[in-house]
Structures are given as C-alpha cells and as structure tokens.
C-alpha cells in the first residue's frame, strides 16, 4: 500500500488549556490538552501538533508540563511550536518529549536559525511553519506572501521561494497555513498547497480552513499534501479521527487503520 497520508489534530494551547479561535480572535476553551491528546490517540490520530499561543512568557512553562505528560502516555509523534526562537528552546522541547519542533517567526528574522537547529538536532525534527496569504488583486494570478502575527503583518516575502529556501537550509517538513482560510471552515487553499507541495522535496502538512471531510480529501488529493492538520472539526466533536479516516479510505486514500490497546 505504501506510505499513508497523515491526519493530524492541532491543539492550540493557551496557559495550559486547549483553545480555538476564528482567525486568532474569539478564543473558545476546548478542554484539557492531556485528555484531548489521549482521545485523539485512541481515535487513530497519526501525529499531534501543539502550538503554544500563550502571550506572556511566565505562563509558557505550563506547555512543558503538558508535553511531558502527553509524551509519557501517547506514543505517536508530537510536534510542538510557538515561541521557538533559539537553540535552547528546541532542546527544552525535545527533552520534554517533543519529537519535532515547529519554527515560525524566528525563521523570518534569522533563517540561519533553521540551519543551526537542523544541524544540531537533525532535519527530521525541524518543521517550518509558514503562514501565507494571497495578496494578488482579483482577476490576477495568485501571489502568496508570508505573514506573521496571526496573519496581520505582512513580511513582503514570496511564499513558494521561502519554503524552498527553508528546506534547503535543513527543514525536514513544511507546515503550510493559509491565513485566508484559517478558522473559516471553507476548505484549504488548494492552489498554494499544490504549489508548495510541488516545489519542495520534503513532506507538506496542509493547514487552515477545514470544515468538512471533503476538505481533507481535497487537501490530500488535489493539493498533494502529505498530511492534513485540523482542529475545530475534531475539538468540537463534529467528526472523530476515525470517521475522517473511514471517509478518506472510502475515497481511495491510503490511511493508517489503527488497532487499539
């Protein structure tokens, strides 16, 4: 059958709790991260991503506790991101039990950081998260730029070339989020997913906009993503991971059918 496409629930963590907002606004509490991680693991999640969106640095310690607890009982790959700015951040997260760390804003200020982290800890544990927006005018060909601050701040950097650059520096995977779609439940931006997936040699995780199981299929089939990331549809019980996998398998997508202890 070959390599399976991965279904990855994403947990946005604020002060040790899972939250979910629409375009980074209107945060809603979605529960205890350890409990949610355990549930997704039992449902057959292929990986878990934790993104720390805690604003103040003194509350960030709670994330380490969360990662440590989850890593002690959930034995699937864990990616942790949010505020990863220097090598000691990478080391601390790996020591807490993360398998991969996700680097976002710090790569924009200093792309060499990606190279240093990949050299020290290996490309397999360095994910680069890129947040993109289509800045083309209506009726023009799409043109995506890298945005920061939850999609509010433009960097002027062209997205496809940026993804290629970070991969050439040693990133082992690309987490691609469309800020036009994030939290909208209107489906992935298929065009940018396909463009990045074709442009880089490493796996691409599509993110931003999942509202239905059909959206997951489109991201993998039309978008060519290796994995899909979603949060709302799983957190609020719209679908289970198992339902998502059954649906995808029914449409001919290779997925891991997990058997549970």
């Amino acid at each position: 059958m070959g390599l399976a496409k991965r279904i990855i629930p994403c947990l946005d963590i604020d002060k040790g709790r899972v939250v979910k907002g629409v375009k980074f606004l209107e945060m809603r509490d979605a529960g205890d991260p350890v409990e949610i991680a355990r549930r997704y693991d039992q449902q057959g999640a292929d990986e878990l991503v934790f993104l720390d969106i805690t604003a103040s640095s003194e509350d960030r310690g709670t994330l380490m506790d969360v990662v440590e607890k989850v890593a002690g009982e959930v034995f699937i790959p864990l990616t942790v991101g949010g505020g990863v700015r220097a090598l000691p951040d990478v080391r601390r997260l790996l020591q807490a039990g993360a398998d991969k760390v996700s680097i976002n804003t710090a790569a924009i200020a200093n792309p060499e950081f990606v190279a240093e982290a990949a050299y020290r800890y290996g490309s397999q544990c360095i994910v680069v998260a890129i947040d993109v927006k289509n800045v083309a005018k209506k009726n023009e060909d799409p043109y995506w730029e890298i945005f920061t601050h939850g999609g509010r701040k433009s960097t002027g950097i062209e997205a496809i070339g940026w993804a290629q650059k970070l991969v050439s520096l040693g990133a082992g995977e690309v987490l691609l989020t469309s800020m036009d779609r994030d939290g909208t439940k209107s489906g992935f931006d298929i065009k940018v997913t396909r463009a990045v997936s074709n442009a880089v040699s490493v796996p691409v995780i599509a993110s931003g906009g999942v509202g239905t199981l059909d959206d997951l299929y489109d991201g993998l089939a039309a978008g060519g993503a290796d994995a899909v990331l979603a949060s709302s549809i799983f957190h609020f019980g719209t679908y289970t991971i198992q339902q998502a996998k059954n649906y995808l398998a029914g449409r001919g997508v290779a997925v891991r059918d997990a058997t549970y202890r």
């Binding site: 059958m1 070959g2 390599l3 399976a4 496409k5 991965r6 292929d46 490309s123 397999q124 082992g172 995977e173 997936s197 074709n198 040699s201 490493v202 796996p203 060519g224 290796d226 994995a227 891991r256």
Partner: peptide
C-alpha cells in the same frame, strides 16, 4: 527518480506511517 508510479513526487525523507 523520486517520483511515484502515479506521477506524484516521492518525498525524501520517507516520513510517516507505513506497513
């Protein structure tokens, strides 16, 4: 070449779940 039989790109590293 790093291309699958269905024409899609075969990503290296081989990363993810396989049988």
């Amino acid at each position: 070449p790093e291309v699958n039989t269905d024409g899609t790109r075969r990503k290296i590293p081989h990363m993810g779940w396989n049988q």
